[in-house]
Amino acid sequence: MSAPQSQNRHLPDRLQTPMARMLRSWEALLVVVFILIFTANSFASPYFLNVWNLSDATFNFTEKAMIAFAMAMLIIAGEIDLSVASIIALASTAMGLVMSAGYGVPVIVLAGIATGLICGAINGALVAGMNLPSIVVTIGTMSLFRGVSFIILGDQAFTGYPKEFAFFGQGYVFWVISFELFLFAVTAVIFYILLHRTNFGRTIYVIGNNPVGALFSGVRVARVRFILFLLTGLMSGVAAVCLTSRLGSTRPSIATGMELEIITMVVLGGVNILGGSGSILGVVLAAFIMGMVTFGIGLLNVPGIVMSIFLGLLLIAVIAAPKLIWRK
């Protein structure tokens, strides 16, 4: 008998400790970048190191980051949702309609969140239910959702939200901690646990690396995809509540182009745009970096569009750098 010489060797669980792996990770690099930008900013402007100014700066990214967490999971699973900014527009419009009809704050908030969920369910049904490519579907629903806002509002706007409604975008929970910053922190923790600590999170990576293999391993691929779109819609609804509250008005052009900033945030955070890898911590760090860059440049009186050049370059550079260095 040709039995292989099998004396059972002991296989270690890991060769690298999680700590050692962390130190060599993309997230570690982001921390260094964040420290550098923070230091540069504090030298560049005397107004930077002020807790209230810093607190203000967080409004730059909190709404986007809430969506980015859900988007990160979607991208890790190999899908994408380009309709998020349009969901914000439609959710905001729904809130405006409810407000105009005379309903109070709880109903307004519910209307925003429910609209987000419905839009997410539509995307999910098209992508997961009918097996359509998400990039095309969400380009379509991106036009559709915002288009409905335009049909309802035209060139008009909803204003006159109740005073109490302002809390979600302008209120403070404790000292310099705004409600948005608080919500950002809470959602970050929830999404961190969901992605990195649960069975559901594991299946997201499985699907992103090999959707066919996932199916052959008993993973309910379509169901997971549907839930991810639902979550992205939900977070867009939540972000719509915050943004509408912060601006105090709804126009159909609200949050135009925000999907690109969110995707930039996700990719900068180390999520592979082709799916399969990434972490919530990376997205949190990317959110802080983008927020600090925007804020720092703003303090120097540089216009926003120049800032967007910088972000565009940053996006390409962070992805190109490891590829160019690795090649050598």
Partner: peptide, 30 residues
């Protein structure tokens, strides 16, 4: 960037779309 550096095209053109518009602003100051 797609060919030589190997970055997915969606990322490349997402970046260059903001850069190219930004360059217009730099040239004209808006």
């Amino acid at each position: 960037l797609v060919w030589r550096v190997g970055i997915p095209s969606i990322v490349v053109t997402l970046g260059t779309m903001t850069i190219y518009r930004g360059v217009i602003f730099l040239m004209t100051n808006g």
